[in-house]
Design a protein around this nucleic acid. Sequence first.
DNA 1: ATTCTTGCAAAACGTTTGCAATCCG
DNA 2: CGGATTGCAAACGTTTTGCAAGAAT
Lengths: 137, 137
Amino acid sequence: MQIIRAKKILVNSGLEATPARINVLSTCISATRPLSVADVAAKVGSTAHLATIYRTLEKLASANILTRIDFQEGKFRYEYVSDHHHHAVCESCGKVIEVQDKRLEAIMENVKVGSGFSITRHALELFGLCHSCQKKG
Amino acid sequence: MQIIRAKKILVNSGLEATPARINVLSTCISATRPLSVADVAAKVGSTAHLATIYRTLEKLASANILTRIDFQEGKFRYEYVSDHHHHAVCESCGKVIEVQDKRLEAIMENVKVGSGFSITRHALELFGLCHSCQKKG
DNA sequence: ATTCTTGCAAAACGTTTGCAATCCG
DNA sequence: CGGATTGCAAACGTTTTGCAAGAAT
């Protein structure tokens, strides 16, 4: 459990450290992969209502404590991250691994878009088959 | 109108060239930006029921005639594309421009993911402010 | 005749919101 | 006290689905 850590993070960010928030955040910290709202709800049980989870995750994302991630499933996921990275998602079994490529980031930094856009964020997700699903054909 | 062209594309792909499909596809071909299902529905009027539009767009995407795009709005968009490219979306006014970066593609081609993923597709979207919205500050 | 496609209505999801009760500073 | 947070229920927008009617091969 990451309850103490979650509490510190909340206080550090000037957010009230309520039980609901502590539970939601510590769940995200403990997770090994980006969690959907339903995932979080299943983990926190009755300690936080679904609507509260939505509000909490949104608030934590606004505070840059969590990152909102989109695997193009028709719903969002949230991840507790320190370093910026991307994901490769297996389209067969759903396995997720983190991907980092310095060349990628270097390019992303200075993608100069012709018509003068100023880019504030980007979303890059990779999709394919993981090692074991490739063998299963 | 791109009706004749739409019809040819459908036949070429072995799909029945029904009025509903022709209307949906020619609408996408004529579009200057990725269309949501509601966008398509507004354009085709009563020539295709909403459920039919969903089914048609999905079918066209499966046949690689359209690309399904996700601007993280809670809904998908569809685009008729010949060349592979990405998008920059203005978060203020919604303006969309196409982005191409050969270095980006070159890297994407051989992102070797440690754990042996084989990458079949990727999604990259850029978000920020367009030229005129930057000035409006 | 048999398969594919469509319209319709209903339902399924994910998400948001109004409001009253409650908690916290 | 006064503002922030929560639970609840209801609503919302997008997408999917079962089914019967219709069209195509």
